[in-house]
Amino acid sequence: MGLISKIFGKDLLIGLNRTGRYGVSKPITMQYPKEKWTPYPAFRGTIRHLTKETEEGETRVRCNACGLCARACPAECIHIVGEGKGKDRVPKTFVIDFSRCLYCGLCVEACPQDALEMTSFYESAVYTREEMVFDLDKMLEDYSKWERTFKK
């Protein structure tokens, strides 16, 4: 038996059988720029800011510049300068340097106001390093169209 299987190359045939079967089945790969991957709801993409409606009916940023996210960040890429006091406190500048960001989501978890959340945006390649530094306006508006994903 051993000799016969050796002559006919049994092990080779078993391998070829397997390969041949997959040769005619549907491919599992994706043609990326044409087809796009939809991330799962837990996906950790670019961070954006959220707004809230106050009692007077005006829309404003949820963030009150407490600085907990900056303290939680392992990469130290969040820089905040606050303005005002108490309930009126808002961030004067809120800058995230995404070229340093780890996308770990610790800032979102740390936020007591639920002001930050992560979006499904993943194609974040740009031409210069300066474009990777996002300020508050950019995080409020440019990414509002993306699906809301990671939230604690």
Binding site: P39, A42, R44, C104, F150
Partner: peptide
């Protein structure tokens, strides 16, 4: 790739997951 998909489903990242937390995990299974 199938396993990495599962990871993405749970914690939102495929490779650098950081899903565990001191005292448990970051979020429940979706």
């Amino acid at each position: 790739e199938m396993i990495l998909d599962l990871f993405e489903m749970v914690c939102g990242a495929r490779l650098t997951t950081s899903y565990f937390r001191i005292g448990g995990v970051a979020n429940d299974l979706p």
